Computed example of a mutant assay.
Amino acid sequence: MINKGANDLGGFLRSRRERLTPDAAGIEPGVTRRRVPGLRREELAELAGVSVGYYTRLEQGVSTSASDAVIDALAAALRLDPAEHEHLRILATPRRPTRPRARRSKLRPSVRDLLAAIPGSPAIVIDHRADVLAWNRLGHALLAGHVDFDAPDSRVRPNIARMLFLDPHHRALYRDWHAKAQVTVAALHQAVARHPADPGLEHLVGRLAVDSPEFARMWARRPVRTCSSYLRELAHPVVGRVTLVNETVTLPDDDQQIGLFYARPGTTDADALILLAQSFERRLAPGTPSRKEEAR
């Protein structure tokens, strides 16, 4: 299992301190041999303008919160990018004890209707745990045609992170698998910071760390990044190589995301999506839609 302390303020500070070299921080090399890969605690404390004792308490977890001024100073000293700066702020914000979050997210009917209203583009909805709450037909055909269409309504929903690291069919879809994996792990880190009392999220991270050494290594590096648009290079088993724009729309009230995939009209990538849709319709033709599909 992943240690809960791996997600706290101290762990994040330590990871970024060890990443920052003295040269990048503008510190002159000393005559003594360095025993740490990055900055020493006292060097970072001096750069941030805080006492060594105070910074040490933050990193060791004795202190679990810090003022905005201190967070801003630490972010500047550590050369954090905007996404990392915000993540640090979330980790350092005092929280009242909260009840464990419900294990199963609910999808609003209007969001399900929205997916059905865009049949020409693959679309999918996931929650903060990366559980798939719904997909339209083309989204299902693009990302997980080997999984039952009604799987998001089953007791154990498909999970994008679990499929990415443990499902060879889904993993093979991404020609840029490493980039996709980094983004997925970063999203889970940020989700843990927002929902520290979510047992379902804790279980997911723990199981992935046990079942996938690759996930465990990436998780230990604590990647953090925020981006809503990606260029996805896929190797689809039906239509072959295709490059699509992946736009992410966040539903803040539900902490859910809609993932949309599209290609510019008239391109070979757009033709591939048309071919995929036709192929999926042919697969459905001999049978009848499930009762759940008819109910929608």
Rank of each mutant, 00 (worst) to 15 (best):
W135S: 07
R101A: 15
G120Q: 12
L20G: 03
D72A: 13
N136W: 02
E46S: 15
V50Q: 09
V36H: 04
I90Q: 05
E86Q: 13
A116Q: 10
R103C: 10
E86H: 07
A66E: 11
P94N: 11
H85A: 08
R95P: 00
V111G: 00
I124D: 00
R79G: 07
A83M: 04
R79H: 15
N136T: 10
I124K: 05
E84I: 04
D68C: 11
I90M: 07
A24S: 14
P94A: 14
V52I: 15
S121L: 07
R96V: 14
R129A: 02
E42T: 11
T93S: 09
G120I: 05
R96L: 15
G120R: 14
E46H: 15
P122H: 10
A141N: 03
G53D: 15
G139S: 09
V31A: 11
P119C: 09
D131M: 04
W135H: 01
S105A: 15
A76N: 13
P29F: 14
R89V: 01
V132R: 00
L91Y: 00
L74A: 02
A130H: 06
A48W: 04
S67W: 08
I118W: 08
P37Y: 15
P97Q: 13
E59N: 04
L133C: 08
A116D: 14
S67F: 05
R95W: 06
S110Y: 01
W135Q: 00
R79E: 14
T21V: 06
V70H: 00
P109R: 05
L91Q: 01
A130I: 01
H87P: 04
E84M: 11
I71H: 00
V36I: 11
S105W: 03
R103P: 09
A117W: 02
I27E: 08
H87Q: 10
V132M: 01
L91T: 02
T64V: 11
H140Q: 14
R108W: 04
I118V: 15
T64Y: 01
I126T: 06
A117M: 07
R112A: 13
H140R: 06
D72W: 01
P94E: 10
G26C: 09
G139R: 00
A69V: 10
E86Y: 01
A45M: 07
D23H: 11
